[in-house]
């Protein structure tokens, strides 16, 4: 059971990253491969404010998230908006380029060393069925669940959420209804960065922070999103947890150095047998 509990913790982080991927996918139809960098930046921001500027956590946390939101908006304005031919391939290539730039900047600003962040809640292990789970892990799991619930409610049940989805499905239809599609896309990048930063902050006491964290976190989050079905928030959550738990069990049997390969084995398996993901739906088109 202990492997299961550890897996759920890392899985919750993958789930948050997957949700970030899904938000941008749901409104723009593209995959933002810089999403992992916002996780890293969330950790960097909180570290800087807590230990370099001595700002208390209650203030540092919202400021870090707001900073990530602004950066997400800037990312869209700088890297996405002015692309002349907005093909999926071009946009994905640009997000990869953007992620490399963000990572490079992070290395210059914060250096190559791993930065230690102390726990935000009293750190203790709680005995649960046949194992223990730390309070840090509970924070990660709890926040992931609350955010998933709120976002699913927003996108599926509220009229604004449906308007956001409309932008992805038919930008022309959305714009003739007076919806500013560019603003929606920009806002989506901001929210996705905000979510990435939440993941980065809550996981920082568990994994600590390094400038290069974003690559693997981003790829795992992407794997989780594909597993669950791109665009599905609960699919992303399920994919994240499945990935985290699988990795954890894999590491108990094989050398832990190979556990990262697990994500990609699962993604290959899913793509072979259910390309739309576990919760994704095939699109019907009127002909």
């Amino acid at each position: 059971m202990q492997f299961f509990y550890s897996g759920i913790t890392s899985g919750s982080i993958y789930a948050l990253v997957a949700i970030g991927f899904n938000i941008i996918y749901n409104t723009t139809g593209i995959i933002n491969f810089a999403q992992g960098e916002f996780v890293m930046l969330g950790g960097m921001f909180i570290y800087s404010m807590l230990y370099m500027m001595n700002i208390p956590f209650v203030l540092a946390f919202p400021v870090a998230l707001f900073g990530a939101f602004v950066l997400g908006v800037i990312f869209e304005r700088v890297f996405i908006r002015y692309v002349k031919v907005k093909s999926e391939l071009n946009l994905i290539t640009i997000t990869i380029a953007g992620s490399i730039i963000l990572r490079g900047l992070a290395m210059v600003i914060w250096g190559r060393d791993t930065l230690l962040v102390e726990s935000f809640v009293p750190s203790k292990a709680i005995n649960v069925y046949k194992g223990t789970i730390t309070t840090d892990s509970l924070v990660v799991i709890g926040i992931s669940l609350v955010i998933s619930f709120l976002l699913t409610f927003f996108f599926k049940k509220t009229k604004y959420g449906k308007a956001f989805r409309a932008c992805y499905e038919d930008k022309i239809a959305a714009s003739v209804c007076g919806i500013n599609v560019k603003a929606v896309v920009m806002f989506s990048f901001g929210i996705a960065a905000f979510l990435g930063a939440i993941a980065g902050v809550v996981v920082s006491p568990i994994t600590y922070v390094t400038y290069s964290d974003g690559i693997m976190t981003g790829l795992k989050g992407f794997s989780a999103a594909v597993m669950g079905g791109l665009g599905s928030f609960w699919g992303g959550i399920f994919g994240g947890i499945l990935l985290g738990v699988s990795e954890s069990f894999f590491a108990s049997v094989f050398p832990s150095g190979y556990k990262d390969a697990m994500a990609f084995l699962i993604i290959l398996f899913i793509l072979f047998f259910r390309p739309q993901g576990l919760f994704g739906r095939k699109k019907a088109t009127r002909v």
């Binding site: 009229k159 604004y160 989805r165 038919d170 959305a174 919806i179």
Partner: peptide, 29 residues
């Protein structure tokens, strides 16, 4: 036609209202 196939006819109608009137997002949520 430019309609949103994932939304019902009634939900498609809401787009015209949201786009025009922009009701406050926080209050609506």
């Amino acid at each position: 036609l430019n309609l949103i196939n994932e939304l019902t006819l009634r939900e498609n109608m809401f787009l015209g209202v949201i786009g025009k009137e922009k009701p406050p997002i926080f209050k609506s949520f």
